[in-house]
């Protein structure tokens, strides 16, 4: 078998990490935020997940970052990788240059080093946009009988929008959210598009207008398209936002 690698000859990677520990400001001697460089020997199939864990276990046990599924499905590990937001767990070091600069996702509360509180942001967004099925009859649904029908195609379309993993990459990739904290971002608008598509949600366009019919909502989007280009799940964000913009502009109340 000619393609089974035997001997391994590997690069030395310079991983520069933006260190900052807000909570340590209170007690420990803190150096503020600074870039710290770690050297890691690259290995076959090394991802940033592997590299960062190696750094933590062997070089600096205090390094903070978030991984949960390490399989690109939970959305925990969004960070800025050489300037661009992405999922660290599915980023291979072989696709990166010798020097790798890592920083936390901007626009979210910093917990420490590479760890940010995307969860809090997303929960806030969910509460604000009421991202659940609104249906008066939900209380009385009868679960003993055959379920409501749905066109297979429609179910698929809803799922396509449901694939968002709330990783926050689109928020970090959007200049608007960087300037204006109140903007719900592509993740929020996509959720509204998802529920609008869902016949089980009985909200009208006027209801949705109340949620996103302002400059913190759909009209705040300046069509920078970073969201669409950097969403790790390749969601059709621009299409959805344009769609909502048309709908909301046509809403009369």
């Amino acid at each position: 078998m000619n393609n089974i690698p035997l001997a391994e000859e590997h690069r030395m990677l310079q991983i520069q990490i933006l260190r900052h520990n807000p909570s340590a400001l209170l007690c420990d001697s803190d150096k503020g935020s600074h870039l710290q460089t770690f050297e890691v020997e690259e290995a076959l199939g090394m991802t940033l997940f592997i590299a960062l864990n190696e750094i933590r276990e062997e070089q600096d046990p205090s390094l903070q970052f978030d991984f949960v599924c390490r399989a690109g499905i939970c959305g925990s590990c969004g960070m800025i990788i050489n300037g661009r937001p992405g999922l660290a767990c599915r980023t291979l070091t072989k696709d990166l240059p010798d020097v790798i600069v890592l920083a936390p996702l901007p626009g979210f509360e910093l917990i420490g080093d590479l760890s940010v509180n995307t969860g809090k942001w997303m929960r806030g967004m969910s509460e604000h946009l009421e991202t659940w099925v609104h249906n008066q009859e939900l209380e009385e649904i009868n679960i003993d009988v055959i379920e409501e029908r749905m066109e297979p195609r429609l179910a698929e379309q809803i799922y396509e929008l449901e694939r968002c993993i709330e990783c926050g990459c689109c928020i970090a990739a959007c200049g608007t959210t960087q300037m204006r904290e109140e903007f719900v971002g592509a993740a929020g608008l996509n959720q509204i598009a998802r529920f609008r598509l869902d016949p089980r949600d009985k909200r009208s366009d006027a209801d949705y207008y109340e949620l996103i019919g302002n400059d913190a909502g759909v009209f705040g989007c300046m069509t920078l398209l970073g969201c669409e280009d950097m969403c790790p799940k390749n969601l059709p964000l621009a299409t959805q936002i344009a769609f909502l913009r048309r709908r909301m502009a046509m809403t009369t109340g």
Binding site: A206, Y209, E210, G213, N214, D215, G217, F219, M248, A249, T251, T252, G253
Partner: peptide
């Protein structure tokens, strides 16, 4: 209800 249509 009164929607504020100005943003649109």
């Amino acid at each position: 209800r009164k929607l504020n249509l100005w943003p649109a």
